[in-house]
Simulated assay, not measured.
Amino acid sequence: MKTVKIRNLVIGGGKPKVCVPMMGDEEAVLRTAEGIKKSRADLAEWRIDTDPDWNNESHILQTAEKLRSVLGDMPLLFTFRTREEGGSAAVSEERYRELNRTMIRSGLIDLVDVEFFKTEETVKSLIREAEAHGVRTVLSNHDFEKTPQEEEIVRRLCAMQEAGADLAKIAVMPKEEQDVIELLNATWTMKKFHPDTPVITMSMGQRGMISRLCGELYGSAVTFAAYEKASAPGQMQVEEVREIIEKLHV
């Protein structure tokens, strides 16, 4: 699988990297950042949609500067997860572009999450903006209702690759055990036949928890774990995830 280097972190080879979300207002995310920095996490995700003051750009930039100071060389992923894909806030397409564009241009983030089912104009413009400013793009899709069939998961991930994603991500909700197998098979298919872009896949909830731990075998390059508060169903604590991954690796 092709690898992507962000600061000193290489994504796409060996053990899956552990990303920990930071949620809430400035005080909460800075407190979490301090904990993440001391943990065995590889990178941090800032879920700005969970900040009550997310629509205040000066506040966001000030918080970003403080986060950058705390995290140092740890890569920072900026994410506005919309309500349509399980996030905490609703936002217009235009405002979504503006917020992400502001952060891409700030020089304070390393990766930006772009929801793949936004308009083609939004996706392409943000990818171009990110490329111009040296920010890596994670194209993502989240389905909290169901798990598409393997072929559809592969189709979406390949479409993300073709659109220019640096990393392609999909998270789905299983209704039965077979759904977890569909997700894992799709991940392996990407690893085997479409290795041009590292992929991030997960089956959510307790039923899908195994998908967060076996990325090295099936091909998911990053797993998400909680420090204090989980950002999605089925997230385990960061130290638990790291310990299990290390044992599986040995």
Rank of each mutant, 00 (worst) to 15 (best):
1 M>I: 08
3 T>H: 06
5 K>N: 11
6 I>G: 09
6 I>N: 05
7 R>L: 10
8 N>M: 07
8 N>R: 07
10 V>H: 14
11 I>L: 13
14 G>W: 12
19 C>A: 00
21 P>G: 00
21 P>H: 01
22 M>N: 11
24 G>L: 04
26 E>H: 04
35 G>M: 09
35 G>K: 11
40 R>C: 10
45 E>L: 07
45 E>G: 15
46 W>D: 04
48 I>Y: 05
51 D>V: 01
51 D>F: 00
52 P>C: 02
55 N>T: 05
56 N>S: 11
58 S>E: 12
58 S>Y: 15
62 Q>I: 15
64 A>P: 05
64 A>N: 07
65 E>Y: 13
65 E>L: 14
66 K>A: 08
67 L>M: 13
68 R>W: 11
71 L>E: 02
72 G>D: 11
72 G>S: 07
75 P>E: 06
80 F>K: 00
80 F>I: 00
81 R>H: 06
81 R>L: 10
85 E>A: 03
86 G>D: 01
88 S>T: 08
91 V>R: 07
96 Y>M: 04
96 Y>N: 07
99 L>E: 03
99 L>T: 03
100 N>G: 00
105 R>N: 06
105 R>M: 09
109 I>T: 01
110 D>R: 01
111 L>D: 10
114 V>H: 05
114 V>A: 07
115 E>N: 12
116 F>P: 03
118 K>I: 15
121 E>K: 01
124 K>C: 10
126 L>F: 13
127 I>P: 11
128 R>Q: 15
131 E>Q: 15
131 E>K: 12
132 A>S: 09
133 H>F: 06
139 L>H: 08
140 S>G: 05
141 N>W: 13
144 F>Y: 05
147 T>R: 04
148 P>I: 12
148 P>C: 07
150 E>T: 11
153 I>Q: 06
153 I>S: 14
154 V>Y: 10
157 L>A: 04
159 A>G: 02
161 Q>T: 09
162 E>F: 13
162 E>R: 13
162 E>T: 11
164 G>Y: 02
164 G>R: 03
169 K>E: 10
169 K>P: 04
169 K>C: 10
170 I>C: 11
171 A>N: 01
172 V>M: 01
173 M>S: 12
177 E>P: 06
178 Q>A: 12
179 D>L: 00
182 E>Q: 12
186 A>H: 00
186 A>D: 01
189 T>H: 08
190 M>V: 15
193 F>I: 10
197 T>A: 09
202 M>N: 06
204 M>F: 10
204 M>K: 07
208 G>M: 08
210 I>N: 08
212 R>A: 10
213 L>G: 10
218 Y>F: 15
220 S>H: 04
221 A>H: 04
221 A>D: 09
223 T>W: 14
224 F>R: 00
227 Y>F: 12
229 K>C: 04
230 A>Q: 08
231 S>H: 08
233 P>A: 07
233 P>V: 02
233 P>L: 12
237 Q>D: 11
238 V>W: 03
241 V>H: 01
241 V>W: 02
243 E>S: 15
243 E>P: 06
246 E>N: 12
250 V>K: 13
